[in-house]
Amino acid sequence: MEKPRDPEDLYHALGNDVNPARPILTGDVIEAVEITNADGATITRTVMVLDHPCSLRTNGVDLADRLLVAEVHDSSPISWREGEFNRMPLPAPMPSAEGKSRPLAAYFDTSYHISPAQLLAGKRIACLSVLGIDLMLQRRVKHFSRVTVPTDNFDKANIHVYEEADLVKGWCMEREDHGVKAEDAFSECLKWLREDLGGRTRQDKLKDAGLRSTVRQQMGQRLRELRAVRRSTSRAEADAARCPGPQGTAITPHTSTYIPPAQSDRGATWQTKTPSSRRAILFEKIADATEALSKHNAPAQASALKDLAEAYASLSFPNQPHS
């Protein structure tokens, strides 16, 4: 039986660092989940998702109708290698765990079946890392069958699912920035992953260790394309909303060359704008200039410009968001 070198290695994210965009995955810990007992009584518990990554979702998007979860509560100190295989230790820095003396643990022998609605009504407080999930699966298999399977085997068998969860999270985060709802972004990402590329999908390619980095590169490229479409749409909307000046082209947000507003807008257009719309245009111009500098191999200057702009904004508009 194996153990982590450092308890921190067990966790992908904890507390407020848990990203809602990450799909529910094996090993996630969710608090305040209402569970209906066999006698009909309702209890509220912190639970860990036990279902195997491959059986969590029936169609890839929607969680299965019944999910198996283990109750999480405090435990006596646990020796990873020498027994107590009925539980998965969750030591500090897990919230509510107090170092080695009072860790939490997910108990495989205190489990419940709950609906996705019950699970999602709770608050996710921890996501296990790849190692954490592998260790949990190792202990669970040991508990139920007395067979010891090295974590490397679990890793090799499931890594494509963990990879997919990471890709979905990355996609959803980016698309939410573009104003796309999380569930729509999730479906969008899965559609892209399942696109038929001549008998093989990107999802299939994730099973091949040699092709995973290519899928990630392709996803980055696709998101850049979507970002460009989004920027273009935003600019068109901003153009449409803006009052035309005497020349009609005093502020040209489509150009990639930075033109300071004071020079570019000598007419009445700039002067007649509200402070917030001036700020929006200014930030848009800064974003353009930063991007242009980055493209022209001047990333240090791009960063300096952005830092300068943010510093200026924080001094000038202390109560406004600056980025």
Binding site: A13, S129, D166, R216, P299, A302, S303, A304
Partner: peptide, 27 residues
């Protein structure tokens, strides 16, 4: 700039969880 470095690392196709491991920080 760090952001440009991160972008290049991402463009190479590394998984962010692996980048975090190699940087010895959390995801």
């Amino acid at each position: 700039a760090p952001k440009a470095l991160l972008e290049e690392i991402g463009n190479l196709g590394f998984a962010w969880r692996d980048v975090a491991r190699m940087m010895r920080v959390s995801v």
